[in-house]
Amino acid sequence: MSFKSVKYGAIDIGSNAIRLLIATANTMTGNPPNFKKISLVRVPIRLGQDVFTTGEISEVNFNRMVDAMKAYKLLMQVHKVEKYKAYATSAMRGAQNGQEIADYIKENCGIEIEIIDGSHEAAIIAMTDLHNVIDERKVYLYVDVGGGSTEFTLFAYGKEVVSRSFQIGTVRLLNDMVNNSLWAEAENWVKEVCKPYSKIELIGSGGNINNIFKSSGKSQGKPLSYFYLASYYEKLQSYTYEERIYSLNMNQDRADVIIPACRIYLRAMKWSMAKNIYVPKIGLSDGIIKSIYNADNRI
C-alpha cells in the first residue's frame, strides 16, 4: 500500500475573527483520507463591528487584516503548505470596500481571498467530516453560528437534505441589527424542514459552542442537553462582561458574543424540538481543507 501526506491551509475571514487552520490529508491506498489538524491561529479582528454599523471596513482593521495576512503567508511557508484557500464570509461580502481590500491583499500579501455568499458557505461547512457524529439512523440539524450569519443544514439518515443561511449572527445581535421578522423567517424555515421527522438532534459548530462544551467538562462525543445550555445561558447573563473574562477565563472578544450565540442555539433547539446538541469541533475551516482535498483528488 502507498502512503501520501499533503499539507493544506484554510483561511476563514469571519465577522468576529480571522482564522488560519493548517492540516494534513493523509491517505493510504484503498482507505479514506485522514485529516490531522497541525495548527490553528486565531486573531480577533472584528470586521463585522465595522461593516454592520458603518457599511465598510475601517482603516484600523484594514491594516490589522493586512498584518494578519502577511503573518499567515509566512506561517504557511514555514509549515510548507502545498495548497490553501482563503474565504471571506458575511462581513466582507457586506462591506462596500470588501473587494477593494481583497484586491489589495492579493497584490501586497500574495493571498487571494474569495468572498463567498451564504449558500456557498453552508455548502463548504456541510463538507466537514461528520462521520464520527452522525448516526445514519437519525436526523440532525447542523447549526453553525458566526458573527454575521448562521448556517443551517438538515441531515437525514446520513444524507444532506437542505441548507440555508440567515443573517443572524452574534456581532449583528450585539449591535441590535436582527429584527423580529428575520427571527420569524428562520423559525418558520427550521420548523418546516423539520416537520417530516419525529425526532431531531442538533449539531453545533462555532467558537462559542466549542467554548461552552469545553467548560461543561463533557467527554468528546457526548451531547449537551437543552436544560444544560439553558442553565448556562442564565449563568452567563448573571455575570458582567468583566466577570466573564475574569471568573470564566474568557477571551475579551468571546465574552460578549457568547450570549447571543447561546440564544441562537437555544432557539434552534426549541424550533426543531431537539433535546440534545452535539459539539464535534468542526467549522468552515475544516470544510475548506476538505474542499481543497476533494478538488485535488477530483471527488
Rank of each mutant, 00 (worst) to 15 (best):
Met1Lys: 07
Ser2Asn: 15
Ser2Glu: 14
Phe3Asn: 08
Ser5Cys: 11
Lys7Thr: 12
Gly9Gln: 11
Ser15Ile: 00
Ile18Gly: 04
Leu20Gln: 05
Leu21Met: 12
Ile22Met: 02
Thr24Gly: 04
Asn34Pro: 04
Phe35Pro: 10
Phe35Thr: 06
Phe35Gln: 10
Lys37Asp: 14
Ile45Gln: 04
Arg46Gln: 14
Leu47Asp: 00
Gly48Cys: 07
Gln49Ala: 13
Val51Trp: 09
Thr53Ile: 09
Thr54Met: 14
Thr54Phe: 12
Ile57Met: 12
Asn61Gly: 13
Arg64Gln: 13
Val66Asn: 13
Val66Ser: 05
Ala71Phe: 07
Tyr72Val: 03
Leu75Glu: 15
Gln77Asp: 14
Gln77Arg: 08
Lys85Tyr: 10
Lys85Met: 09
Ala86His: 08
Thr89His: 04
Ser90Val: 01
Met92Glu: 08
Gly94Ile: 02
Asn97Arg: 06
Gly98Pro: 09
Gln99Lys: 05
Glu100Asp: 13
Ile115Ser: 00
Asp117Met: 07
Asp117Asn: 15
Gly118Tyr: 14
Ser119Gly: 06
Ser119Thr: 12
His120Val: 15
Met127Arg: 10
Leu130Pro: 01
Leu130Phe: 12
Val133Asn: 13
Asp135Pro: 02
Lys138Leu: 10
Tyr140Ile: 00
Tyr142Cys: 01
Tyr142Gln: 05
Val145Arg: 01
Gly146Ile: 03
Thr150Glu: 13
Tyr157Asp: 02
Gly158Cys: 07
Val161Ser: 06
Arg164Val: 07
Arg164Gln: 08
Ser165Lys: 02
Phe166Gly: 11
Gly169Ala: 10
Thr170Asn: 09
Val171Arg: 02
Asn175Tyr: 12
Val178Trp: 05
Asn179Gln: 09
Ser181Asp: 10
Trp183Cys: 08
Asn188Lys: 11
Val190Phe: 03
Lys191Ile: 06
Lys191Leu: 05
Val193Thr: 03
Cys194Val: 15
Lys195Leu: 11
Tyr197Asn: 00
Tyr197His: 03
Ser198Lys: 11
Ile200Phe: 08
Ser205Gln: 09
Asn211His: 13
Phe213Asp: 05
Lys214Glu: 14
Lys214Arg: 12
Ser215Val: 11
Ser216Cys: 15
Lys218Trp: 13
Ser219Leu: 15
Gly221Ala: 12
Pro223Ala: 12
Ser225Tyr: 05
Tyr226Asn: 04
Phe227Gly: 02
Ser231Tyr: 07
Tyr233Ala: 01
Glu234Tyr: 01
Lys235Pro: 00
Lys235Val: 00
Ser238Asp: 04
Ser238Leu: 01
Ser238Ile: 01
Tyr239Leu: 04
Tyr239Met: 06
Thr240Gln: 03
Glu242Lys: 01
Glu243Gln: 04
Ile245Gly: 02
Ile245Gln: 12
Tyr246Cys: 01
Asn251His: 13
Gln252Met: 09
Gln252Cys: 11
Asp256Tyr: 05
Ile258Lys: 00
Ile259Thr: 02
Ile259Glu: 07
Ile259Ser: 01
Pro260Gly: 07
Ala261Glu: 04
Leu266Gln: 04
Ala268His: 02
Trp271Arg: 08
Ser272Ala: 14
Ala274Phe: 14
Pro280Arg: 09
Lys281Gln: 09
Ile282Arg: 11
Ile282Glu: 13
Gly283Pro: 01
Leu284Arg: 06
Ser285Tyr: 07
Asp286Lys: 03
Ile288Ser: 11
Ile289Gln: 00
Ile289Gly: 00
Ile289Glu: 06
Ile292Tyr: 10
Ile292Lys: 06
Tyr293Ala: 02
Asn294Val: 13
Ala295His: 12
Ala295Arg: 05
Arg298Met: 13
Ile299Glu: 10
